[in-house]
């Protein structure tokens, strides 16, 4: 049945996503073991962002959502960036 085909197709996508997430976890732990100096933090946050995007896009179906919802999420992330960024005009200089 068409419905079943769709369902197993989605299952495949979810499992693939999960494997990628596990692999990225292994990667980030390995990278943290190496001494990358100040790039270590940056790498960790970048890998975390890739993982978060995978969860958002596939587990949370953002990939299949309307442009409106994507725009709203981007707006929220932009707001967060603005808040943290502007605070660093103070603390980044003062500390």
């Amino acid at each position: 049945m068409n419905n079943n085909a769709k369902s197993s197709g989605r299952t495949a996508i979810y499992i693939a996503t999960w494997i990628c997430l596990l692999a990225l976890t292994a990667l980030t732990v390995t990278v943290a073991g190496m001494n990358l100096g100040k790039y270590g933090a940056l790498t960790s946050v970048l890998i975390a962002s890739v993982k978060a995007s995978l969860i958002l896009l596939f587990f949370m179906h953002l990939k299949y959502e309307t442009l409106l919802l994507k725009a709203m999420l981007l707006g929220t992330i932009a707001t967060i960036a603005v808040i943290i960024g502007l605070t660093f005009f103070d603390v980044g200089i003062r500390y």
């Binding site: 502007l86 005009f89 103070d90 200089i93 003062r94």
Partner: peptide, 10 residues
């Protein structure tokens, strides 16, 4: 007591 630069920016 914020940093001077942030006061100007804000």
């Amino acid at each position: 007591g914020m940093s001077d630069i942030s006061r100007i920016v804000f």
